[in-house]
Design a protein around this nucleic acid. Structure first.
Length: 206
DNA sequence: CTCTTGATCTTCT
DNA sequence: GAAGATCAAGAGC
């Protein structure tokens, strides 16, 4: 039993070397390939962020996907090319961030659901009004607030500032389960998580 | 610990 | 008018 490695700042305040930037080609594949490969990658936004520990895949043929019923002003970015951010308002209150995948017009995306905070902790604590690292990014609405992502960033490319997603340095153990908070197609096991992580929005069943 | 509820935007009926 | 890819606070056990 090895615990997931937790990068800590070095004495000079820097972090362990990040993998190369993920570019459009990485995202131009099935959400069911991209989603598990995002676990362990590092998402940064303007100097804040952390290791992706939980995501969910939403394919356009999936009744739970925002794009299932066709294009609307809200979901238009999903119908564009891969490698861009789709940000939407959740329950009238929160912002949630997706990465658009697959060929253009496929309208499929991966929802980023939780991060293990590693970068810009002070800024994220201030935005969240909390100190506890476990509560900073353990949910899609929480992480958007912590990183300062809003509808103003909808449609931005993921491989250019302020966004950056770095390839994971190693292949971690990934667990799967049913998605959270949906009623349609609730039995599809399209939630992916970092095994043993303490930074998930909820534990995985089993 | 679990359960319930309010907040309040976008879309669909 | 209702539901939804959510969260935090409060009540109860």
């Amino acid at each position: 039993m090895t615990k997931p490695r937790v990068p800590k700042p070095s004495s000079d305040g820097t972090h362990p070397a990040l993998g190369p930037l993920l570019t459009r080609r990485f995202f131009a594949r099935s959400v069911h390939e991209v989603a598990p490969e995002l676990i362990g990658a590092t998402l940064l936004f303007g100097g804040t962020g952390g290791i992706i520990v939980e995501v969910e895949a939403y394919h356009h043929t999936d009744p739970a996907a925002h794009s299932f019923g066709g294009q609307t002003p809200r979901n238009a970015v999903m119908f564009g090319p891969p490698g861009f951010a789709y940000v939407y308002r959740s329950y009238g209150i929160h912002w949630c961030v997706n990465v658009v995948c697959e060929p253009e017009d496929s309208a499929s995306a991966v929802l980023i659901r939780a991060l293990e905070p590693t970068h810009g902790l002070a800024a994220m604590r201030k935005r969240r009004g909390l100190d506890e690292p476990r509560s900073l990014c353990s949910g899609p609405g929480k992480l958007a607030q912590a990183l300062g992502i809003t509808i103003a960033h909808n449609g931005l490319p993921l491989d250019a500032a302020p966004f950056a997603i770095h390839r994971r340095p190693r292949t971690p153990e990934v667990v799967t389960g049913p998605r959270i908070g949906i009623t349609k197609a609730a039995d599809y096991p399209w939630r992916y998580g970092l095994k043993g992580s303490r930074f998930l929005s909820k534990p995985f069943p089993g």
